[in-house]
Design a protein around this nucleic acid. Sequence first.
DNA 1: ACAGCAAATTTGAACGATCAAATCATCGCG
DNA 2: CGCGATGATTTGATCGTTCAAATTTGCTGT
Lengths: 337, 337
Amino acid sequence: MGNERPTITTVAERANVSRQTVSNVLNAPHRVQADTRQRVQAAIVELGYRPSRAARQLRTHRSNLLAMRMTPFSEELAGSVLDRFVHAVTESAQGYGFRTIVFTANTDDDEIAAYSDLLDSYELDAFVLTGTHHRDRRTTWLRKQGVPFVTFGRPWGVRARHWWVDVDGKAGTTAATERLLDAGHRRIGFVGWPIGSGVGDDRRAGWETTLRAAGVDPSDLLTSTENTVDNGHASAVELVHQRRADALVCASDTLALGALAMVRDQVSRGGPAVPVIGFDDSPSAAAMGLTTVAQPLREAAVTCVDLLTSFLDRSGDDASVEHHVLLDPHLVVRQSG
Amino acid sequence: MGNERPTITTVAERANVSRQTVSNVLNAPHRVQADTRQRVQAAIVELGYRPSRAARQLRTHRSNLLAMRMTPFSEELAGSVLDRFVHAVTESAQGYGFRTIVFTANTDDDEIAAYSDLLDSYELDAFVLTGTHHRDRRTTWLRKQGVPFVTFGRPWGVRARHWWVDVDGKAGTTAATERLLDAGHRRIGFVGWPIGSGVGDDRRAGWETTLRAAGVDPSDLLTSTENTVDNGHASAVELVHQRRADALVCASDTLALGALAMVRDQVSRGGPAVPVIGFDDSPSAAAMGLTTVAQPLREAAVTCVDLLTSFLDRSGDDASVEHHVLLDPHLVVRQSG
DNA sequence: ACAGCAAATTTGAACGATCAAATCATCGCG
DNA sequence: CGCGATGATTTGATCGTTCAAATTTGCTGT
């Protein structure tokens, strides 16, 4: 049997047309007459023809490939947010005929080196970045190279400008805080990250302004620690016991799980039930019945891919116009608050 | 400035040799004399030359690409095991000059369709499969096509034969059960999955044989449910309250977290502390202080990539020899047991 | 000094697609 | 009736690499 992989020429012969006509059916169908188009399409189906990306890429310098960094192997709980995001991006990219290459890198500079290799060797079409931060070197590098990219996370530096999609963390903590206020709590503590990270500051701001607006002074109701479960526990002890907080909003589920453990422990000893609200809706949050702020990751991913493809289509055109999308998170209410 | 991307010809001119010599320096260094080799290498560095994968692929039909399916978007806790595995594979594949393409699929047939597309269009070199099960159609399909692949998970069907790496689940639950026996427990319950899944049966077997060896009849100490936190909770209630189990081994962390919640609840009401041991060492397990059986995912990933590359190198040779690797998990002891 | 041979290097063709330009067909209209 | 315009299709060149065969270089032994 004809076990050779069919090429565009095979198809052309089968349909009694030239290579180029087959190519046109695939890439510019309007240029070819209806009846020949059908004949060609039939031949394609019969032979099970699929164009060789390598050959196409060699000629056009487009790979239909997009790349993302995966979250570091051993990262905490946090991992799952970005993993879910990677998955969602992959899924929606497939809808546009793009495949996703993943890679690992430990520092921004490693990541830039990876970009460089991927661009030169594989001619990637675009990148999706996550975890933007102050003085992000990746975005400036990519801009300088003129490579299309979108970030999940807004540019926290003043001067950085590029296309991005982000989730409104401030709105999330605002909703969380308001819910607790509505339930009658006043001394609402915030278990936060060290000052200076864009994301952390944003989330803290939601809590702070809401509390102020309600006439509560937030100044002694705040802790700032690295993102670990144990730190969450310790912070909760401090806020509840020493500062007499009667409810807690946390910058992450990781911290919240620590806080939740402390609170449940206290309840089991007959203490008061202090509600806890986390951030990210990680699988652990669901498992532990933690109320939390959920990011619309799927929507974020779809939007990223939309932006990228529209950017690639009108390449160069007026690609200098920036596009931003800020999505609203929503509260997932469970037992903890 | 010479802003054109350098090609092999550019390098050749710079080093005063022919294209082919440059190619040989890259692909068969032994064929070229030491001094010219160095001259060429210098030119490569100076120009920052990187070979075009597309062109190479067009000629050789090798892409240096390997593909894996990502875990479905919305899957429970379980997700993180495979996410970590994907990450580890990506990382070690990079060491061999392979990049990883990820894709999504909801059923085995979808996955096969994806293979087919990736093979035809992108000429992938190999696949890594996860989650093997009885009557796995993917492995038979790939075998029939003669595509190199390795599975993480052994072939559970009798007739399936291929290269695989797996973790000895039975050894894991054996270790867990022995630990509990050593601590003086006798009526050790097993919170398991429905009969019939290879992985689940394997893990149950470890508990069962160990218990039998210790002279305990396991027959009324078993539950079998789908993998959810709530089911874990319900199973724990049944085993502890009705069957008077004094310790629990679970088929997964998801189930174990439910069981753990039940147990801690009971302790807070003054009940006895029933130890719980999970399986997978998910981030949630760490967060909740759950003792659990950890799979050596990194090692598994490295082994998979090793097998694949050695397979690809001696392509065809005596590739019919099978290779299996069974890795031992280890217990991570935390508060829960 | 030169045939004989191995090692080192070069040359032409090919991989499978698209681009740009050329050809062929059809048609309207003065 | 012929000429230009427009649309459909085909032809030759090319992308950057490797393969296979041809060529050049260097050396050995008699």
